[in-house]
């Protein structure tokens, strides 16, 4: 089995509202899987189904090859988007309680918590009450509680919200370390820059349906349209500019007379860049020749807009 989690035709209806419509996903082991989609698309419902907080009306969910059942809860770590802690409880006591609810013994939970509190440099918070902590501090505690029982599958719903950039980086590094240690990670967000950085696979959910999924690099390849960004230092005079404009599908042309710098985009229908390169190298010095790959953000927006209905 190469997939940690598989959903087959998962459908969930709340009264009149169809929250998930036949969503099938395959989440490979030891990967970071981005679950993307606009607000209200159905991501949270799907995650709650994986966590057995709610149950699908139809469809199946398999965890590590077996149909999902109650025992799997101890193999899943979930950091919900709507997260908090008991305000009046002490940090250490609370972390111990939550860890024990996940099935850890008290002594085991204690030693692991000590390790993580040291690691994230929050050791002296143990006896503080949660209401004395800032939002970012509380988030660190929540992160620790999520990963403490070393689950096979980690689900992070908007993990970086509430963190300042420095702490967001610390958490990002921790997530990558967890992946290296063998965990599989589902990462739900609409912050595309973190998707670009972290995710190997993505699925896009929109209006209760999965509209796109697969390896991020494959998806990007599929969405590129053979456009290249080119920068030249001209040797000849400006006649060349007219020649190139008539010969190729050029756009966004920009010429700086002083240092003879020409920048432009070109669309090559065949996708073959050899001919273009050969032509250019005979006429000018090439500074830059880059294929434009769409960002995850662009793919996201394009898909959502094509489907319409995003409010």
């Amino acid at each position: 089995m190469n997939n940690i989690l598989v959903t087959k035709g998962v459908t969930k209806q709340y009264g009149e509202h169809l929250a998930l419509n036949k969503v099938s996903l395959e989440i490979p082991k030891n990967s970071i899987y981005g679950l993307l989609g606009p607000n209200g698309a159905g991501k949270t419902t799907l995650i709650r189904i994986i966590n057995q907080i709610t149950f699908p009306d139809s469809g199946e969910v398999y965890f590590d090859g077996e149909p999902l059942k109650a025992e799997h809860i101890s193999s899943i770590g979930y950091l919900p988007e709507e997260r908090g802690l008991y305000k009046k409880m002490k940090v250490g006591e609370q972390a111990l309680y939550l860890a024990q609810l996940k099935g850890l013994s008290k002594s085991d939970a204690k030693s692991r918590l000590k390790y993580w509190f040291e690691r994230l440099e929050i050791g002296d918070w143990w006896n503080k009450k949660v209401q004395e902590l800032s939002k970012g501090m509380a988030q660190k505690v929540q992160f620790i509680v999520t990963v403490l029982h070393e689950p096979k599958l980690l689900i992070f719903d908007e993990p970086f919200s509430g963190f300042d950039p420095i702490n967001a980086n610390i958490i990002k590094d921790e997530i990558l370390t967890l992946k290296e240690k063998g965990a599989s990670i589902i990462f739900s967000t609409h912050r595309m820059e973190s998707v670009e950085e972290l995710c190997e696979y993505i699925a896009l959910i929109h209006q209760s349906e999965k509209i796109l999924d697969g390896k991020l690099s494959d998806i990007k390849k599929a969405y590129k349209n053979n456009t290249f960004q080119i920068g030249l230092e001209l040797v000849q005079d400006e006649v060349f500019i007219e020649e190139i404009s008539s010969k190729f599908d050029v756009s966004f042309l920009k010429y700086n007379k002083d240092d003879k710098q020409l920048d432009f985009k070109v669309h090559l229908p065949s996708g073959d860049s050899k001919e273009m390169l050969a032509y250019l190298s005979s006429k000018a010095n090439i500074n830059r020749f880059v294929e434009i790959i769409p960002s995850a953000n662009e793919i996201f927006i394009k898909n959502v807009q094509d489907k319409g209905g995003h409010e």
């Binding site: 809860i73 979930y78 919900p80 997260r83 908090g84 008991y86 305000k87 939550l98």
Partner: peptide, 18 residues
């Protein structure tokens, strides 16, 4: 109500049955 407003509820019910 406190568990709802402090938003701890989802953390807890991912470990135990409501």
């Amino acid at each position: 109500i406190e568990e709802k407003t402090s938003r701890i509820i989802e953390v807890i019910i991912s470990s135990v049955k409501p």
